[in-house]
Simulated assay, not measured.
Amino acid sequence: MDPQGGRAAPPHRPGTDGRPISGHAVSATTRAREKVLPLKHRLQLFFFLVFFLPGLLSVAYSLTLLAQTARNFSDSVRTRGTIVRYDKQNKRRLGQRFCPVVTFQHGAGNYQFTDAWCNKSVQDAPPGTAVAVIFKASDPSVASIDEFMALYGKSLFVGVIGAPFLLLGGALLVRVRVR
Protein backbone atom coordinates (compact mmCIF):
# COMPACT_ATOMS: atom_id res chain seq x y z
CA MET A 1 0.00 0.00 0.00
CA ASP A 2 1.08 3.50 -0.75
CA PRO A 3 1.38 5.40 2.57
CA GLN A 4 -0.09 8.59 1.10
CA GLY A 5 -2.96 7.40 -1.03
CA GLY A 6 -3.80 3.98 0.19
CA ARG A 7 -3.30 2.40 -3.23
CA ALA A 8 -0.92 -0.44 -4.02
CA ALA A 9 2.32 0.55 -5.72
CA PRO A 10 2.59 -0.66 -9.32
CA PRO A 11 5.00 -3.55 -9.87
CA HIS A 12 8.53 -2.49 -10.82
CA ARG A 13 9.21 -2.70 -14.54
CA PRO A 14 12.85 -2.76 -15.78
CA GLY A 15 13.86 0.41 -17.60
CA THR A 16 11.28 2.69 -15.97
CA ASP A 17 13.49 3.90 -13.12
CA GLY A 18 16.32 5.23 -15.28
CA ARG A 19 18.51 2.15 -15.04
CA PRO A 20 19.32 0.37 -18.32
CA ILE A 21 17.52 -2.85 -19.04
CA SER A 22 20.79 -4.51 -20.02
CA GLY A 23 21.90 -4.37 -16.38
CA HIS A 24 19.42 -7.10 -15.62
CA ALA A 25 20.51 -9.20 -18.61
CA VAL A 26 24.16 -8.94 -17.62
CA SER A 27 23.47 -10.30 -14.18
CA ALA A 28 21.60 -13.24 -15.71
CA THR A 29 24.51 -13.85 -18.10
CA THR A 30 26.95 -13.65 -15.22
CA ARG A 31 24.92 -16.23 -13.31
CA ALA A 32 24.87 -18.49 -16.39
CA ARG A 33 28.66 -18.25 -16.75
CA GLU A 34 29.15 -19.15 -13.13
CA LYS A 35 27.60 -22.55 -13.76
CA VAL A 36 30.37 -25.08 -14.21
CA LEU A 37 30.24 -27.90 -16.74
CA PRO A 38 29.39 -31.26 -15.23
CA LEU A 39 32.33 -33.58 -14.61
CA LYS A 40 31.29 -35.83 -17.50
CA HIS A 41 31.50 -32.98 -20.01
CA ARG A 42 34.78 -31.69 -18.58
CA LEU A 43 36.30 -35.17 -18.94
CA GLN A 44 35.01 -35.48 -22.49
CA LEU A 45 36.52 -32.10 -23.38
CA PHE A 46 39.82 -33.04 -21.74
CA PHE A 47 40.05 -36.41 -23.52
CA PHE A 48 39.09 -34.80 -26.82
CA LEU A 49 41.68 -32.01 -26.60
CA VAL A 50 44.55 -34.01 -25.08
CA PHE A 51 44.22 -37.39 -26.77
CA PHE A 52 41.71 -37.62 -29.59
CA LEU A 53 42.39 -34.37 -31.49
CA PRO A 54 46.23 -34.66 -31.53
CA GLY A 55 45.92 -38.32 -32.51
CA LEU A 56 43.49 -37.49 -35.30
CA LEU A 57 45.71 -34.68 -36.62
CA SER A 58 48.88 -36.79 -36.59
CA VAL A 59 47.19 -39.75 -38.30
CA ALA A 60 45.76 -37.36 -40.91
CA TYR A 61 49.24 -35.88 -41.43
CA SER A 62 50.66 -39.39 -41.75
CA LEU A 63 48.10 -40.25 -44.42
CA THR A 64 48.90 -36.97 -46.21
CA LEU A 65 52.60 -37.90 -46.29
CA LEU A 66 51.71 -41.35 -47.59
CA ALA A 67 49.53 -39.89 -50.34
CA GLN A 68 52.27 -37.42 -51.28
CA THR A 69 54.78 -40.26 -51.64
CA ALA A 70 52.33 -42.27 -53.72
CA ARG A 71 51.61 -39.23 -55.91
CA ASN A 72 55.31 -38.43 -56.38
CA PHE A 73 56.15 -41.95 -57.46
CA SER A 74 52.97 -42.93 -59.30
CA ASP A 75 54.78 -42.93 -62.65
CA SER A 76 58.06 -44.10 -61.16
CA VAL A 77 61.10 -45.63 -62.77
CA ARG A 78 63.62 -47.75 -60.91
CA THR A 79 67.31 -47.74 -61.67
CA ARG A 80 70.70 -48.08 -59.99
CA GLY A 81 72.54 -45.14 -58.55
CA THR A 82 75.83 -44.55 -56.76
CA ILE A 83 76.53 -42.83 -53.46
CA VAL A 84 79.13 -40.19 -54.30
CA ARG A 85 79.55 -38.59 -50.85
CA TYR A 86 77.81 -37.82 -47.57
CA ASP A 87 76.62 -34.32 -46.70
CA LYS A 88 76.85 -33.33 -43.08
CA GLN A 89 73.63 -31.73 -41.86
CA ASN A 90 73.42 -29.99 -38.53
CA LYS A 91 70.00 -30.23 -36.99
CA ARG A 92 69.48 -28.18 -33.87
CA ARG A 93 67.63 -30.87 -31.93
CA LEU A 94 68.79 -33.98 -33.76
CA GLY A 95 72.50 -33.29 -33.78
CA GLN A 96 74.58 -34.11 -36.84
CA ARG A 97 73.35 -36.37 -39.60
CA PHE A 98 75.19 -37.62 -42.64
CA CYS A 99 72.91 -37.86 -45.67
CA PRO A 100 74.03 -39.70 -48.80
CA VAL A 101 74.29 -37.79 -52.05
CA VAL A 102 73.31 -40.17 -54.84
CA THR A 103 73.86 -39.80 -58.57
CA PHE A 104 72.08 -41.76 -61.30
CA GLN A 105 71.62 -41.69 -65.06
CA HIS A 106 68.39 -41.32 -66.96
CA GLY A 107 68.34 -40.87 -70.71
CA ALA A 108 71.21 -38.62 -71.72
CA GLY A 109 71.48 -36.81 -68.37
CA ASN A 110 73.02 -37.38 -64.96
CA TYR A 111 70.92 -36.52 -61.93
CA GLN A 112 71.93 -36.07 -58.32
CA PHE A 113 69.91 -35.86 -55.11
CA THR A 114 70.46 -35.90 -51.36
CA ASP A 115 68.46 -38.56 -49.55
CA ALA A 116 66.16 -36.82 -47.09
CA TRP A 117 65.70 -39.80 -44.75
CA CYS A 118 69.46 -40.05 -44.04
CA ASN A 119 69.23 -43.67 -42.93
CA LYS A 120 72.37 -44.91 -44.66
CA SER A 121 75.51 -45.01 -42.54
CA VAL A 122 78.96 -44.25 -43.90
CA GLN A 123 80.26 -47.57 -42.52
CA ASP A 124 77.52 -49.70 -44.12
CA ALA A 125 77.44 -47.91 -47.47
CA PRO A 126 80.66 -45.98 -48.15
CA PRO A 127 80.92 -43.64 -51.15
CA GLY A 128 80.96 -45.66 -54.36
CA THR A 129 78.29 -48.10 -53.15
CA ALA A 130 75.50 -48.89 -55.62
CA VAL A 131 71.95 -48.34 -54.37
CA ALA A 132 68.49 -48.80 -55.84
CA VAL A 133 66.92 -45.50 -56.87
CA ILE A 134 63.31 -44.65 -57.65
CA PHE A 135 62.44 -41.43 -59.47
CA LYS A 136 59.53 -39.76 -61.15
CA ALA A 137 59.64 -40.45 -64.90
CA SER A 138 58.24 -37.02 -65.80
CA ASP A 139 60.62 -35.22 -63.40
CA PRO A 140 63.84 -37.13 -62.58
CA SER A 141 64.81 -34.49 -60.01
CA VAL A 142 62.16 -36.03 -57.71
CA ALA A 143 64.09 -39.10 -56.56
CA SER A 144 64.74 -41.23 -53.51
CA ILE A 145 66.63 -44.31 -52.48
CA ASP A 146 64.30 -47.23 -53.20
CA GLU A 147 63.91 -48.64 -49.70
CA PHE A 148 60.82 -48.91 -47.55
CA MET A 149 62.05 -46.63 -44.76
CA ALA A 150 63.37 -44.01 -47.19
CA LEU A 151 59.99 -43.85 -48.92
CA TYR A 152 57.53 -44.44 -46.10
CA GLY A 153 59.53 -44.01 -42.88
CA LYS A 154 58.35 -40.52 -42.02
CA SER A 155 54.71 -41.41 -42.64
CA LEU A 156 55.03 -44.61 -40.61
CA PHE A 157 56.77 -42.82 -37.73
CA VAL A 158 54.09 -40.11 -37.45
CA GLY A 159 51.27 -42.64 -37.79
CA VAL A 160 52.68 -44.98 -35.14
CA ILE A 161 52.87 -42.09 -32.68
CA GLY A 162 49.41 -40.72 -33.51
CA ALA A 163 47.40 -43.95 -33.67
CA PRO A 164 47.55 -44.78 -29.92
CA PHE A 165 46.49 -41.22 -29.06
CA LEU A 166 43.57 -41.48 -31.47
CA LEU A 167 42.48 -44.90 -30.20
CA LEU A 168 42.92 -44.05 -26.53
CA GLY A 169 41.12 -40.73 -26.90
CA GLY A 170 38.25 -42.37 -28.77
CA ALA A 171 37.94 -45.15 -26.20
CA LEU A 172 37.96 -42.70 -23.30
CA LEU A 173 35.38 -40.47 -25.00
CA VAL A 174 33.07 -43.44 -25.56
CA ARG A 175 33.59 -44.76 -22.04
CA VAL A 176 32.76 -41.40 -20.43
CA ARG A 177 29.78 -40.96 -22.75
CA VAL A 178 28.28 -44.35 -21.86
CA ARG A 179 28.47 -43.88 -18.08
Rank of each mutant, 00 (worst) to 15 (best):
G107C: 09
T82Q: 13
Q96H: 06
K91Q: 10
Y111I: 10
M1I: 11
K88I: 03
K40F: 00
P20R: 05
F157T: 10
D2R: 00
A171R: 06
G18F: 04
A32G: 07
D146Y: 00
A32M: 08
D115I: 07
H24F: 10
T114P: 07
S155Y: 02
T29I: 13
S138N: 08
V131A: 09
G109P: 01
G169V: 04
V26G: 03
Q68L: 12
K120L: 15
L156Y: 09
Y111A: 12
L37M: 11
A171W: 11
R42P: 07
P140H: 09
L166R: 00
P164Q: 09
K154Q: 13
S155F: 01
F52T: 12
P11Y: 04
F73M: 09
R13Y: 01
A8P: 00
P11S: 08
V178E: 12
Q89P: 01
L65R: 07
A9P: 02
A9T: 10
R31V: 10
F135N: 03
R71I: 06
A132Q: 15
S27A: 12
N72H: 00
G15A: 10
V102P: 10
Q112K: 13
N110Y: 04
Q123P: 02
Q89C: 02
V36L: 11
R93L: 14
L37P: 06
I134F: 05
R175W: 07
S58A: 14
L66W: 00
R97V: 13
L65N: 12
V142Y: 02
L156W: 00
S141Y: 02
V158A: 14
L65G: 08
G18I: 11
R7G: 06
R92I: 04
L66N: 10
F165D: 05
V174L: 15
A25K: 07
S155G: 02
G170N: 11
V178K: 15
R177C: 04
W117N: 07
L49S: 14
I83L: 04
A130F: 02
N90D: 14
G5Q: 01
P3M: 08
P140I: 09
F47E: 09
V84D: 14
G5P: 00
Q68T: 14
A150W: 02
R179T: 08
D17C: 05
N119I: 04
T64E: 03
L37V: 00
C99P: 06
K120N: 14
L65T: 03
T30A: 12
S22N: 09
S76G: 02
P11W: 03
V77E: 13
H41V: 05
V50E: 10
G81C: 06
E147I: 01
T103A: 15
H106P: 01
I161K: 03
D115G: 09
A137T: 07
G6K: 01
N90I: 05
V133T: 08
D87E: 15
Q44R: 15
P11Q: 08
A8L: 14
H106M: 08
A163G: 06
K154P: 04
T114G: 08
Q112D: 05
H41E: 15
P164R: 01
S62W: 01
T69D: 00
Q89Y: 05
I134G: 10
V174W: 13
D139V: 02
I161D: 05
Q96M: 09
G15N: 10
V84E: 15
I83M: 09
G128E: 10
T79D: 12
G128R: 01
